[in-house]
Design a protein around this nucleic acid. Structure first.
Lengths: 199, 199
DNA sequence: CCAAGATATGAATCGCGGTTCACTTCATCA
DNA sequence: TGATGAAGTGAACCGCGATTCATATCTTGG
């Protein structure tokens, strides 16, 4: 036995893997999923095509990881907003604002995460992502309904509808590349009314 | 000049074209866009693969037409509901019900029209489709706001959010194949509240 | 019925990007 | 330093399904 993986090597390995993920993320954020070939990712990371396959079994697995990471960041930001103190209406409002503002700040990425056609492996990641958002809003609504602050409603359906409303209201601006901040207050008002909250 | 296209031939040509479109529609409704190859469509229509290309320049054009037709039927149904007499709240309610009920009755088709990954040419059709829905709801909201029946709001943003809410609230049931009619009243209540209508 | 031209056929082709793998380079350790 | 084996390389390969096109079949008008 004349070789064992050394900490220094492991570190380089980890760095390469991270570089690949970072390159893939940058590409998605810049030109969307459609503009991402494995060869391009590799070149962006400064490695050969084959090297990508020493770190990921296939393209889907790579992009699933990219989506997962990008998504987690978004979900965490919204969850943090939802966890702030205040009335349900205020918390919903600030959560919607967080979601919308972040999306409008990185429109190409947001479009890729929300609406761009992707392959099934990545689509599965997207469903997880939407479920996470639904979960945040469903919990908020359920608590408020239980406390009598909101009228009776199915929190799951309301939460899904909230997520859909946010996504759809932003898709056109995102796709058009128009960063119309103007939709944000309209959207928060819409959603506040939709769950029966009084601001 | 020893040949001219005769009415009988034109009729047969039209019939073949219609058979191709019908076969493509049936396939989409049965297994979604992903399960549709040109060869399969041709076989379903009882013609050879090449014949498809005598009627359509490429696959995208064929499916764009299929989407357009399927979509138009849906939009017309919703528009008819929106045009019924009654209060805005009642008309919105019946429109949402129409949309949801029809979607749940043909879930695979609805999923394909609403959310399934499709190629760009067809995606463009989908945007048109969503714009048509937005238009229906935007007109309804705009009229009601002008008449003082709804609070001030941007009809375009509200309409987009309504469409998004409908789509998202139905995607999970559609994808799961679960025809849960239960979401319909929840959804109509949500949307009624969202635009500020009092039922 | 024949010539001219349109239409139908489906096997062969083609393009594309994901994936592989024979080979090179590098790291480890006795 | 050399033997051992891991990591890296990138050109070649491959699978898949859209598209083509040489050929066969059908229609028409004379």
């Amino acid at each position: 036995m004349a070789y064992r993986r050394t900490p220094a090597v492991q570190e380089r390995l980890d760095a390469t893997r991270a570089a690949i993920v970072a390159a893939a993320h940058a590409l998605v954020a810049e030109r969307g999923y459609a503009g991402c070939s494995v060869a391009l990712v590799a070149s962006g990371a400064g490695v050969a095509t084959g090297t990508v396959y020493r770190h990921f079994p296939d393209k889907g697995a790579l992009f699933a990881e990219v989506f997962r990471a990008a998504t987690q960041r978004e979900v965490d930001a919204v969850a943090a907003s939802a966890a702030k103190p205040g009335t349900v209406a205020a918390r919903i409002e600030v959560s919607v604002e967080t979601f919308a503002r972040r999306a409008l700040k990185a429109p190409r990425l947001a479009y890729a995460l929300i609406a761009e056609p992707v392959d099934p492996q990545v689509e599965a990641e997207r469903l997880t992502y939407r479920r996470a958002y639904r979960g945040i809003f469903a919990a908020l609504v359920a608590d408020a309904v239980a406390a009598g602050d909101l009228p009776a409603q199915d929190p799951e359906v309301s939460a899904a509808a909230v997520v859909g409303a946010m996504a759809e209201a932003l898709v056109v601006p995102l796709h058009a590349g128009v960063a119309s901040q103007r939709v944000v207050p309209e959207l928060t008002a819409f959603i506040t009314r939709s769950i029966g909250a009084t601001p």
